[in-house]
């Protein structure tokens, strides 16, 4: 019997060895660095203040995602409507919120009291607490991005699907809800999952208006004890934890969608 001899690939081995060596050096230099006190990391990793901040971060991201999704569907439908006014309004919204830094938007919402002292009968600062301002700023911004994602999903569904639904006597909203959006979901899910992970990290921006999130908590502690890097490592651990969990969730949802939908396009 002849033997199959794979070609030798010395560069592949060398490259891999180099990567491992660099990673090991980095790990050791952090681990043995005298300027990092590992005790501080351990002390704060599960500290109540940090965990409270983590909870705010997660709640903030979830609320903003819900607002963003609802708003995104609404804006996408407006963008695809027959009315030029609705189309323009939706386009303008996306243009404005995508075209300005999220940090600026957060600062504006956090300082809205400077513009309007009262919102109706209420004092602006009583209504727009840092948390509420953060939810609004993140949610509205998320909406602009979700609008484009949802619109792409709706466009990807064959027009004949809408014709068939309407021909059966369905109203346009019903057709959208029962026929179009479920199919659009397969196209929407991957970028929407990405978007959610971005959002989880973007919550850290609300620390500029003392939003009470994970970064705010870590920052408050580090400005008292001056262990900046240690507390950023504490925060890093938690950010990685929540983004990893949501990646896994996204993976799971996509697999389930893939199973039930079985092939978007009908063959003849």
């Amino acid at each position: 019997m002849t033997r199959v001899v794979p070609r030798r690939r010395p560069w592949l081995w060398l490259g891999s060895a180099a990567v491992i060596a660099i990673a090991a050096l980095l790990a050791v230099s952090i681990y043995r660095n005298p300027n990092i006190q590992h005790g501080v990391i351990l002390q704060y990793q599960f500290a109540p203040a940090i965990l409270a901040g983590l909870r705010v971060t997660v709640v903030l991201a979830l609320l903003a995602a819900v607002i963003g999704t609802v708003l995104g569907v609404l804006l996408a439908v407006m963008r695809l409507s027959e009315s030029p006014v609705l189309r323009l309004a939706s386009g303008f919204y996306t243009w404005l919120l995508r075209g300005t830094p999220l940090l600026v938007q957060i600062l504006i919402w956090g300082n809205l009291a400077l513009l309007f002292e009262y919102l109706g009968p209420f004092k602006t600062n009583d209504v727009l607490t840092p948390f509420v301002a953060s939810v609004i700023a993140l949610g509205l911004n998320e909406g602009a991005y979700m609008a484009e994602i949802v619109r792409a999903g709706i466009i990807a569904v064959d027009r004949g699907q809408n014709d068939a639904a309407l021909a059966l006597g369905m109203s346009q909203p019903l057709a959208l809800r029962r026929i179009i959006l479920p199919q659009a979901l397969r196209v929407i899910m991957p970028p929407a999952g990405n978007q959610f992970i971005s959002l989880l990290k973007a919550t850290s921006l609300v620390s500029v208006i003392a939003g009470g999130d994970l970064l705010t908590a870590a920052h408050n502690i580090s400005s008292a004890n001056l262990h900046t890097i240690e507390l950023m490592l504490v925060a890093t651990f938690w950010y990685l934890t929540v983004t990893t969990i949501s990646s896994l969730g996204q993976h799971y949802v996509e697999r389930r969608l893939g199973k039930s939908g079985v092939g978007m396009h009908a063959s003849s």
């Binding site: 068939a164 021909a167 059966l168 006597g169 109203s171 039930s260 092939g263 978007m264 009908a266």
Partner: peptide, 22 residues
């Protein structure tokens, strides 16, 4: 709403079938 009611009484079959794939 009335257009929908009228359409419900008229069946339509398409060239490309347009079954709902999900």
């Amino acid at each position: 709403r009335e257009v929908c009611r009228q359409r419900a009484d008229i069946g339509m079959v398409f060239q490309r079938f347009n079954l709902f794939p999900h």
